[in-house]
Design a protein around this nucleic acid. Structure first.
Lengths: 205, 205
DNA sequence: CTTAAAAAATGAATTCATTCAATCTTTTTT
DNA sequence: AAAAAAGATTGAATGAATTCATTTTTTAAG
């Protein structure tokens, strides 16, 4: 059986994470005070810092959980993709984007992305970056599957194409998060337009 | 002649900007205290805040000056591009990347990019975003010129291609800034590989 | 069961960005 | 040229994140 210490630790960690996620959603990242998070989690401020390096860290932890879900959602598309290059891409990317705002506000995304850029060495930033890499892989995998199905011209550098498509959809998501006024549909439409040339050109005749 | 007040204002503004740029380079962004910047610029802390909304703002101002130079450097390539799609792209992108680290450290880039994402409504963030847009336009312009020259298949959506190429080079630059160990050459090589499929496919036969 | 060692929790103290009411300087008006 | 108005500067006060010496709790040893 697990020792008392280990159980308490896991328990406190969860309480802190839950309290933070909730408070971020309620009042936004900036207005959420560490003191309040600590109070809700029934630990001291000092203890908070034993579990997370800094305020940003716990946001990135929250966001990472969301990205895990996005990855899982993407898997259903990759496992059974539409049979056109453009259609498959739109399905996967649409899945990503639709999931993105279910639990997180644009402000939370902005903050998490900013932190993962600014402090790339913190443990949770590394986790976030790793998740991005897996999303990128997922896009490449989709392209590869389409190639195996004969939908993409043989000899295409699948990884290069996947990376370019992913980097584009990722940067466009940053633009989307920066602009509170931009609706999801506009994001999708713009990315679809950007994808079209490449998608059309790599499609097997 | 300009009024005394206007002259003093311009002078103070320059002193603050110079002091900040220097201090950022000397000790890095985080360790540079507003109090020290103000002291070097021979103004009070309060005055600093009359000129810049917050600490991030003045970094983004510094970085923006650098991006202006990158834009100017890019113009020389666009005005007289190499006569192959891949070559032209590599020349322009190489110019961008080579310029990027002349005056700014990776840490300064990271911080500036993070701020422009996190506080997109601050005046200098808007300026930074605007400069990004102009860089993107420059890439599209290059593609367009190549198309006019007959080097790219007619009917290609030049803007869509330009945006995708730019978003890719931009995100790769973020990755580069996040990884202190990555050398410029690796960045260039990776982007060149990513560009190849699209560059090859849009090239007129 | 007691005691020593290790691991965690605690919150008061520190640090730094940011604010704002009071003061000073420049410009405009009479 | 004096007075009023407008525009700027100032630095002490505020507020929030982060630190760290001390205390408390848990585990391991005898």
């Amino acid at each position: 059986m697990t020792g008392l210490r280990a159980r308490q630790k896991a328990d406190r960690n969860r309480r802190i994470l839950d309290a933070a996620a909730l408070l971020f959603r309620e009042v936004g990242y900036d207005s959420a005070r560490i003191e309040d998070i600590a109070e809700r989690a029934e630990v001291s401020v000092g203890t908070f810092y034993n579990y997370y390096e800094n305020k940003g860290d716990i946001l990135v932890a929250t966001v990472s959980m969301e990205v895990e879900e996005v990855l899982a959602a993407g898997r259903t598309i990759v496992d059974n993709p539409p049979s056109s290059v453009e259609g498959a891409l739109q399905a996967l990317i649409g899945q990503y984007y639709d999931h993105s705002l279910v639990y997180l506000s644009k402000e939370m995304w902005r903050t998490a992305m900013a932190i993962s850029i600014q402090q790339p060495e913190s443990p949770f930033s590394k986790r976030y970056t790793e998740l991005d890499r897996r999303l990128c892989d997922q896009v490449s995998t989709l392209i590869h599957k389409l190639q195996v199905k004969g939908l993409i011209v043989p000899g295409t550098d699948v990884r290069a194409v996947g990376e370019m498509l992913f980097n584009n959809l990722n940067l466009m998501f940053i633009e989307f998060a920066k602009d509170e006024a931009m609706p999801l549909d506009e994001l999708k439409a713009r990315v679809a337009r950007q994808n079209r040339p490449l998608a059309t050109l790599i499609a097997a005749p």
